[in-house]
């Protein structure tokens, strides 16, 4: 497999993990989580995503992907859409 293919496969796996985290933390149905696209808005758009839930999402992502997210990396932009969150996680996990 080429390096690019490995990254692509890794990215797909991370997308799946992020979906599972959002489903588990926010109590969403599997269908709703599966329907998330890159442009689906998160923070501010999902009433379930309050400060405790944000912390829960970030901590679960850390635990499941084995990464460490610094507090100063957390901003509105990274949580704005599903795609932004998944891209952030992928950068951390695949670097």
């Amino acid at each position: 497999m080429t390096g690019e293919a490995v990254v692509r496969e890794g990215k797909a796996e991370i997308d799946t993990t992020i979906r599972a985290v959002l489903r588990d933390v926010l109590g969403l149905s599997a269908e709703r989580a599966a329907a998330f696209a890159d442009e689906t808005p998160l923070f501010g758009a999902l009433p379930e995503l309050d400060s405790m839930a944000v912390a829960g999402v970030l901590t679960e992502i850390e635990d499941r992907l084995g990464i460490l997210i610094e507090d100063d990396e957390v901003d509105g932009e990274m949580l704005e859409t599903f795609g932004a969150l998944a891209a952030f996680a992928a950068r951390k996990a695949l670097q």
Partner: peptide, 19 residues
């Protein structure tokens, strides 16, 4: 330590700045 990190993060999101 993990719980403390999480509590710090909750507080940080609540007040909107890193701690």
């Amino acid at each position: 330590a993990s719980l403390l990190r999480e509590l710090t993060r909750i507080k940080s999101v609540e007040i909107g700045k890193s701690l």
